Lab assay of single mutants.
Amino acid sequence: MEVRTIKVFTTVDNINLHTQVVDMSMTYGQQFGPTYLDGADVTKIKPHNSHEGKTFYVLPNDDTLRVEAFEYYHTTDPSFLGRYMSALNHTKKWKYPQVNGLTSIKWADNNCYLATALLTLQQIELKFNPPALQDAYYRARAGEAANFCALILAYCNKTVGELGDVRETMSYLFQHANLDSCKRVLNVVCKTCGQQQTTLKGVEAVMYMGTLSYEQFKKGVQIPCTCGKQATKYLVQQESPFVMMSAPPAQYELKHGTFTCASEYTGNYQCGHYKHITSKETLYCIDGALLTKSSEYKGPITDVFYKENSYTTTIK
């Protein structure tokens, strides 16, 4: 009895394709271990004539594949690729409408935090270190965002349907971005203890939790000093293409032309909904596939993004 075979390709990165001759009487799992086709788990399936010449994702289970996976995804987590594939199996079914010149995501599976993050990423200057993220990001900007969303979920250790947080998501993504040249110098002034300067680099240099107003941050924000008295913390120097200011959701007025974009969060910790506000020729609110415009805006804002380049204080 002759062994019926077909020729397929296996890959971990969709760049390096490895030619395989597979036995049609055995499952993919018996031949390769966990195997995925377009995100779908085909591990328990036997090869079919229609699979001839198709590319299958496999887990990096030998040295060659491990090197290829690390170079593309910059992670050695053995569960990463499987999590990416199972997320992709959902995100490829989502709709990605162009809204006001940006790629958004039609609401499904509690994905409003991903839509808000995706919209924000198209408006701030950011370059990702893992080629996987950078490639998928370019495709997302062009309207094909399924891979990018699935990668975000995998890097953030999230599953489809789980509630997510924009600030946490951005923080994970910033860790995989090139923020080497970003720098922030802060000064804390206390009447009792004097003053202390701190220099922050990388992710810490672009994120701040405690106030939404970048102007206020430049002037000074009140913080408790270690001595128990009130101290003032203010920005001395900022070198970065953008800054992200966050605070627990509270009524906040966004003035046209003073910011790049913002995240609105309605609801409580267990259950809520994100919308995205962007400042173009007027203010726009993007909620999944829905767009509304207004000249002014007041609502429960939790993150505001500002364009920056270089700032030095005039406070002496």
Rank of each mutant, 00 (worst) to 15 (best):
T64R: 10
D180E: 11
T260N: 08
V42M: 13
M209G: 09
D13S: 07
N110F: 03
A154E: 04
I152F: 00
C112V: 05
L200H: 14
V304P: 00
L118F: 10
Q216G: 07
L254Q: 01
Y113I: 02
S181N: 14
F148N: 03
E144D: 15
T43L: 06
Q20G: 10
V99K: 11
I124G: 05
L163R: 15
I6H: 07
V99L: 13
Q230F: 15
G101Y: 04
R66T: 11
L291S: 15
M85F: 14
D23C: 12
M170G: 02
S181E: 14
T5W: 11
I45A: 12
T313Q: 15
F174C: 01
Y208Q: 04
F217H: 03
D38T: 09
Y172C: 10
F242M: 02
P78E: 12
P248Q: 12
H273Q: 01
P300Q: 12
K218W: 03
Y172L: 12
Q122N: 04
N89Q: 11
W107C: 05
K106I: 09
P34Q: 11
F174Q: 02
K255F: 08
L283P: 01
V236A: 10
P34S: 11
Q222N: 11
L151N: 04
D180Q: 12
A150R: 05
P224Y: 13
V99M: 15
I6N: 06
G29A: 08
G210Q: 01
S25K: 15
Q122P: 04
T266I: 10
C190W: 01
T278K: 00
M245Q: 00
A231C: 08
K201W: 15
D109Y: 03
L81F: 14
R66D: 08
T120N: 11
N14A: 14
V22R: 04
P248M: 15
V221M: 09
V67F: 15
K229R: 15
Y96S: 04
T292H: 13
D62R: 08
E281N: 08
A136N: 09
K44W: 10
A205C: 00
C190Y: 03
Q222L: 12
L153E: 05
Y36N: 05
A140W: 02
E264L: 06
F128I: 04
Y155W: 04
M245N: 06
Q122C: 04
Y306T: 00
A40N: 15
W107G: 04
H276W: 08
K93R: 12
T169Y: 01
I223L: 09
P97E: 10
V160W: 02
Y72L: 08
P34A: 09
C190P: 03
K46Q: 15
N61A: 12
S279H: 03
I286D: 02
G272L: 01
T292Q: 11
T19H: 13
D303G: 05
A247N: 06
A136L: 03
E71P: 02
Y137H: 07
R139W: 10
Q216F: 02
A289I: 10
K44S: 11
S246N: 00
R66V: 14
K218M: 03
Y284G: 06
L133G: 04
T5Y: 11
Y306H: 00
E144R: 08
H273G: 01
T55K: 10
T159D: 12
A289M: 10
T292F: 13
T192A: 11
T91G: 03
L179E: 05
T35R: 06
T103L: 05
R83C: 07
D62S: 15
E281L: 01
V22A: 15
E168A: 12
L119P: 06
E125L: 03
S25A: 14
R83P: 04
V203N: 04
K191Y: 09
Y28E: 00
L81R: 05
L17F: 11
C225Y: 00
M24D: 11
W107I: 01
L102T: 06
D135P: 04
V12Q: 08
K219H: 08
F128L: 06
H74R: 09
H276R: 00
T314F: 13
S181F: 09
Y84E: 03
T120V: 13
E296F: 14
L126N: 06
K46D: 12
R66P: 06
L254D: 03
K46C: 13
Y306V: 00
K316D: 15
V206W: 02
S294F: 13
N49G: 12
Q216D: 14
S25R: 12
C285H: 11
L163P: 14
K54M: 13
S86M: 10
V22D: 07
L65V: 06
S240D: 01
C112R: 03
T10K: 13
Q196P: 03
L212G: 03
L59Y: 12
K92E: 03
V99H: 13
M244H: 04
M244I: 01
T76A: 15
I301S: 02
R141D: 04
T314A: 13
P131L: 05
D38F: 10
Y234P: 00
Y84W: 04
N89P: 06
H18Y: 10
V221Y: 08
S50W: 12
N157H: 08
H74N: 08
V206S: 03
F80D: 02
D63Q: 10
P248C: 09
N157R: 09
P34W: 08
T103G: 03
N157F: 06
Q196L: 09
R83M: 08
W107K: 06
P60D: 09
K95N: 11
G82N: 11
V189K: 10
F174Y: 03
D23Q: 13
N268V: 08
K280G: 13
C225D: 03
T199K: 08
L17T: 09
Y214H: 04
A142K: 15
Q237R: 13
N129P: 04
E71M: 07
S86F: 07
Y284E: 11
A247F: 01
C227D: 01
K293A: 14
N49V: 13
K219R: 13
L126A: 04
V21M: 15
T192I: 09
Q238E: 01
A142Y: 11
R4Q: 13
G210C: 02
Q237L: 13
K229H: 10
T258S: 12
S50C: 13
N157D: 12
R141W: 05
Y137V: 06
T55E: 07
K46I: 11
P248G: 05
F259K: 01
Y274N: 05
M209P: 03
C261A: 05
L59R: 08
L118D: 01
Q134C: 10
E144C: 10
L153C: 07
K280D: 10
P241G: 10
E68N: 05
Y28F: 14
T232I: 14
N89F: 12
F9Y: 12
Y274R: 02
G33D: 02
P300G: 06
S171F: 15
Y265G: 05
N61Q: 09
G272R: 00
T76M: 14
V12H: 08
P47K: 04
C227K: 01
I152R: 02
A146Y: 07
P78L: 10
K218R: 06
T120S: 10
D180R: 08
D165N: 14
C149M: 10
A115I: 06
G257H: 08
V185K: 07
T5V: 10
R184N: 03
C193Y: 01
C156G: 05
L179H: 05
F148Q: 01
V160D: 01
G101L: 04
H276T: 06
L65F: 09
V67S: 14
S240W: 00
S50V: 12
Y57S: 07
K44Q: 15
I152D: 05
Y28R: 06
T260F: 06
A289Q: 10
V188D: 05
Q175H: 11
V188Y: 07
S25D: 15
T282N: 11
S181H: 15
K46R: 13
E204S: 11
L283C: 08
P248N: 08
R83Y: 04
Q251E: 14
P60Y: 06
T226F: 10
E215G: 04
P97I: 10
S279L: 01
Y57N: 08
C190D: 01
Q270D: 15
D135K: 09
T35L: 09
K93C: 12
V21A: 12
L37M: 13
V221P: 01
E204Y: 10
A205R: 01
Y28H: 05
T11Q: 06
K201I: 11
Y138M: 14
M245F: 15
I105G: 03
Y138F: 15
V304M: 05
L65Q: 08
G257P: 00
S263H: 15
L126E: 01
T312N: 10
I124L: 15
V188R: 08
